[in-house]
Amino acid sequence: MTVMTARQVETTEATKGGAPELIKAVPVRHPGRWVAAAIILILAALAIQSLATNPRFGWGTVAAYIMDVNVVRGVGWTLLLTVLSMLLAIILAIVLAFMRQSDNPILRWSSWFWVWFFRGTPIYTQLIFWGLVTVLYPSISLGIPFGPQLATYILSDPSKGFVPAVLGLGLNESAYLAEIFRAGLKSVDKGQVEAAEALGMRGTKIMWRIVLPQAMRVIVPPTGNETIGMLKTTSLVLAVPFTLDLTFVTNALANRTYQPIPLLIVAAAWYLLVTSILMVGQHYIEKYYGRGVDNLVAAATVNPAAAKAAAAGTAAGSDTGTGNTIPGGPTTAGPTIEESGR
């Protein structure tokens, strides 16, 4: 006991006697960084000078068309194509990933076949095909098989290129996303499923409530990547043909004005802007699904204290650990157990 007190006094005095002398070492020099910075600055200056002084960039034309009604509408259509085809792809991908993990061999095999087919043929080919579906099937009808038709949707109407475009993009993307989702589901520890099963939960509920939310942490970053990829893949919808998206509109304007470069800049600027916005959205989605794993600042501060309290609890022979040493916490947990026990 006396030894303990002596040591405690010693330590308090040591801290009181002034903070320890902090190390102030001379940092390692990095001349390479300065050289690299200089070279890159020179190259950047050259690029900016060229952009500013070369009249063929046509900045006046860029300014004239950047907010052009057709261009802005094109951005709108491109966004709509991206969002709808990604939505379709995500829904299909979840279904495909679940099917792939199913006990039912028919479902597993169908899922594999879908991925094999849509990943194995070029998106451009698929888009042309979806455009031509109108030749195979001029209309889609909803009805009882071999029975009466309830609703009919005319596909061969040329203004309806939008639906085949979304279908083409979405179905193709679903194959890629299905693989991403499958990897995500696999990344969740098997113990999570076992724990849920032991609690009496069942297949679909375990998937939706336990596995998928944790898989999302792995799924979101590559899916964000795919979404940004999709934004630009929409420029292929002229294969359907669908002719209102950003790339088609700016190309058309370029052909009309004989000024391809400024209009390419217009398109690139819009794509960059939308991509940036998507990246911000992705950041927040990642943050949401990272809960419980990422950014747990408190973890470091909680554990040592808890461990200490627990050790103290055991040493003191208290019934259960930490309770009584934490302010505001419960007193001992022991008695409660006996009261509420059967």
Binding site: V293, V302, G321, I326, T332, T336
Partner: peptide, 28 residues
């Protein structure tokens, strides 16, 4: 009530990664 019974009512809002192994097992 159950968290209180295992001595962890003050840890109710913590994620598993913020708990020590012993605390996690008691939550389990």
């Amino acid at each position: 009530e159950l968290l209180d019974r295992v001595g962890l009512s003050d840890r109710a809002k913590h994620y598993p990664a913020q708990l020590s192994g012993g605390q996690q097992q008691r939550v389990a």
